[in-house]
């Protein structure tokens, strides 16, 4: 199962990615999370502190053309082993470059290293044993620049608003030019049946899961804690657990058959 979570800013991508990763890890899967957003949203949703994410800075060097490369002897798997951090339930978490005191050059190396890791990952032997959950930054930009080359399934988060639905439509249009990708639209922050109907109408597409608007989830986010730890029985966490069932029972067998 190789998933990327996408959608507009604030649509609940990190909460979905972090909670889904923890749920699947508890079911015995070896889970790797990849956050290509430089702000540490996924780390928080996984239950890591805001400053615990490692940087790939030391894994890269500049080659003769002045381009950043992973250092000799460091392939994508080794880079992940060395530079990922361990989150609760045994989830391995790799963070794209983030702001730090070393300034821009260090960040550029880290971002380039991350980009190479995710692009070389699907050719590694470990790829198929890992369940991968990637969290992409808001909007269509990173989808357009191929920041989820590992993903066969895209979980598209959509809120009941035109901004969110148009963003989702733009992302779907981009993904449709990439053959073989499964797109699963998920309704987020849904308050009532009217919200859900509106999302399906605006999107022109059927929704595969509904994550309700949830005050307990908002309080967990306010406290900077993982929803699955802070509010394990909240409606939103329950809905993500049910979505994990859908992925395991329906989506994964279909993909394997294809």
């Amino acid at each position: 199962m190789h998933i990327a979570v996408i959608g507009k800013g604030g649509s609940g991508k990190s909460v979905m990615a972090g909670t889904l990763a923890r749920v699947l890890a508890r079911r015995g899967r070896e889970v790797l999370t990849l956050d290509s957003d430089m702000m540490p949203g996924l780390a928080l949703s996984l239950g890591l502190g805001p400053n615990s994410a490692a940087m790939l800075t030391d894994a890269v060097e500049k080659n003769e053309q002045g381009r950043w490369r992973l250092r000799k002897g460091i392939g994508p798997v080794r880079a992940i082993e060395r530079y990922s951090v361990l989150a609760p339930d045994g989830v391995r978490h790799l963070q794209c470059g983030k702001l730090d005191t070393e300034g821009r050059p260090a960040i550029m190396g880290s971002i380039n290293g991350y980009y190479q890791v995710i692009h070389r990952l699907s050719r590694s032997r470990s790829f198929h044993k890992w369940t991968i959950i990637g969290d992409l930054p808001a909007g269509p930009r990173q989808v357009a620049y191929r920041w989820a080359p590992y993903a066969d399934t895209f979980v598209l988060m959509v809120e009941p608003s035109w901004k969110s639905a148009l963003t989702a439509r733009r992302i779907m249009a981009i993904l449709n030019s990439s053959p073989g990708a499964t797109v699963l639209p998920v309704a987020s922050k849904v308050t009532d049946a009217g919200d859900l109907r509106a999302i399906e109408q605006m999107l022109g597409q059927e929704i595969v899961a509904v994550i309700p608007a949830d005050r307990e989830l908002a309080i967990a986010e306010r406290a900077g804690l993982a929803p699955i730890d802070y509010a394990p029985h909240s409606p939103a966490v329950r809905a993500i657990e049910a979505f994990a069932d859908t992925l395991e029972e329906r989506v994964e067998p279909q993909r394997q058959a294809a």
């Binding site: 507009k8 808001a138 909007g139 269509p140 035109w162 901004k163 148009l166 963003t167 605006m202």
Partner: peptide, 19 residues
Amino acid sequence: ADANPMLGISLGVGPERTE
């Protein structure tokens, strides 16, 4: 200046025109 421009929605020009 957003790569995912939505200002048209909040200004009130409507989703079709914004697209």
